[in-house]
């Protein structure tokens, strides 16, 4: 959270106009999406690595904080709210991938990075070891086969940090449905991860 105004934050790399791409994407340009994805992904990854390596020490790595930070770096605030939502919809999935990749790397190379736990918004979980992140990913893959929308809700809520209302808008379902989906998904994940 404080990272936004921190002067020691890393410089923004290619400040490619993410906002423009988001607008184009919404207008149906698949090319825009293809260009956009690596930009957002790269930024998320860079930020995650940055915090993981402990250059700026925090108690834990908060996925949503990273997404928000990436958002503030990449996107103009004047952007239409619908386009913002698209950004977060994409960022949630990407964030999950980033975390899984980092966890694999940390798992393989024990020296790689500190041992910060990863915190996911709305899920009462703190994922201490790389295996925890990988376990969660596996559980989400299983859930994907049973009810894909639940996974989308989890990605939006937990990885991108969207509120229930925002999640409902992105997925174009009702507020109550988001709540129910999320409650079910949470219980299911907690049980699968053996935390109950």
């Amino acid at each position: 959270m404080a990272a936004v105004s921190d002067s020691k934050s890393p410089p923004i790399p290619a400040a490619g106009d993410v906002s423009q791409l988001l607008v184009a994407w919404r207008r149906g340009s698949d090319d825009a999406l293809e260009e956009l994805t690596p930009l957002v992904y790269g930024e998320l990854r860079r930020l995650a690595q940055y915090y993981m390596n402990g250059e700026r020490h925090r108690d834990d790595l908060q996925a949503t904080a990273l997404v928000h930070e990436a958002f503030l770096r990449l996107v103009h605030l004047k952007l239409d709210w619908k386009d913002r939502q698209h950004f977060f919809a994409m960022a949630g999935r990407l964030m999950r991938r980033v975390l899984v990749e980092l966890a694999r790397k940390r798992d393989a190379d024990k020296r790689g990075g500190g041992e910060q736990p990863v915190t996911l918004a709305g899920l009462e979980l703190s994922l201490e070891a790389p295996q925890d992140v990988l376990g969660l990913d596996e559980a989400l893959k299983t859930l994907q086969k049973l009810d894909g929308r639940k996974v989308q809700v989890v990605e939006l809520r937990c990885f991108a940090g969207l509120t229930i209302e925002e999640t409902a808008a992105v997925l174009e379902i009702s507020h109550a449905t988001v709540e129910r989906d999320f409650k079910m998904a949470k219980a299911w994940l907690v049980r699968e991860l053996g935390l109950a």
Binding site: Q62, F71, F88, A121, G122, G161, A187, R191, A196
Partner: peptide, 28 residues
Amino acid sequence: SLLDADDATWRLGDFAGAERDTRRSSPL
């Protein structure tokens, strides 16, 4: 088993990131 898990999410009840993040206004 799901009800137990649901209870556990209450009892362990650490809202972790979600609540910490409430101090910023939602970007949306």
